[in-house]
Amino acid sequence: MEDRIKRVYLPMTETGFYILFCLREEMHGYSIGKKVSQMTGGEITISPGTMYGTLSKMEKDGLISFTREEEKRRLYRITDLGQEILAMEMKRIERLYKNSKGEVYEK
């Protein structure tokens, strides 16, 4: 994996994390926004400019790919590279979580 991708995406922003996390299933921007809002109890909202910008950037960097269009909405899905980044980020979050509970994290 390119160092640039790691540098840009790790650690991830909350927006980036949730978008990538949701795209393990094929989705379009607005449906990601709704799902994120619902799964975080409304704590995290992703506005359309942010959503569009992040999706374009992730598509350009090969973390997600365009799958098809449905009623003028572009649908995306995570790529292998995206999966790798997401897995690294999840490990980091797990470490943070364990440490915050006073536990020691072992690889």
């Binding site: 379009h28 607005y30 359309p48 400019g49 959503m51 569009y52 374009s56 909405r73």
Partner: peptide
Amino acid sequence: YRLDYNPQSADKKRDYIRMFEDYGW
């Protein structure tokens, strides 16, 4: 009122506008 600057190709424009409309804009 909000202004966005995100030039995109014609094939992506419909999706772009559609997303903002989905969000109520």
